[in-house]
Design a protein around this nucleic acid. Sequence first.
DNA 1: TCCACTTATTAGTATCATACTAACGATATT
DNA 2: AATATCGTTAGTATGATACTAATAAGTGGA
Lengths: 138, 138
Amino acid sequence: MESNTNVITRRERDCLVTLEEDSPKNFPMRLHQIAQTLRVKPPTALNVIRRLERKGLAESKDGMVILTESGDKVAKSILLVHRTYESLLCQSGVSENSACSEAAEVDYIIPAGNARLILKKIGSPKLCPHGKPIPEEE
Amino acid sequence: MESNTNVITRRERDCLVTLEEDSPKNFPMRLHQIAQTLRVKPPTALNVIRRLERKGLAESKDGMVILTESGDKVAKSILLVHRTYESLLCQSGVSENSACSEAAEVDYIIPAGNARLILKKIGSPKLCPHGKPIPEEE
DNA sequence: TCCACTTATTAGTATCATACTAACGATATT
DNA sequence: AATATCGTTAGTATGATACTAATAAGTGGA
């Protein structure tokens, strides 16, 4: 019945974030590069891409992969949560590197709405601890 | 090689928390009661229990299930994270019920050490929004 | 004592995410 | 043309999750 669309796994999250961050100006990314970034073999990466395609988050042709509009939104929302949580952790006394890897564990689970509320509570910083901008609205 | 001990799945988390909260004074819990609480059939619940046993977190005999000392520690640490995150969300403006279900999504992923730092940052409340005590140390 | 009920357990099946190797095809480079 | 690179397919494997059906084992009542 329900195939749990709009629920995302950790691997899918990593793939979305890779596509968002490593291919800025609407440029496609090559499959083997995605595979290398995710540290998996190409068939495994392709498998992840296929799942993203089924969820309407990515499109691919001849190994060129791009995010759809919907995928871009999801990726940006993940980055919002990521940088918000990172900021919270750093303000609490966690090291930058530690904060980043911890954030990756939860940024695809925590809803963006909650992150925005947390962001306000911790003083609405404009940049994450690494100096990257925290996305405003979608 | 490494079988990912001390990493826990969502179902295992639910099972640990059920055992911790629904069977206080070292009393065993019946399998069918666990199954009902988790809203799964008994064989499914048994399967989860078996995984917890393999990880050294639970023990069972004739359908009587208890947490091991190790399992108790893990469960308490999950509750610490749960109530900390719940408190953070509520302070940020999220409703109690929403905060509770959101917290369950991440409380088994966020390390207790981080939760303690966050707890300090948000003013070291002694109780979660529901009025339950936030565990001190392990 | 025998039957019915509850409970636990086993066996078997299914799905989904993850990941690999091996093999094949296409393209590009030397 | 030979080689290297890349994508893709096929096949296999594991682990978590979940189910049904069947069996076992105990309890309580008629």
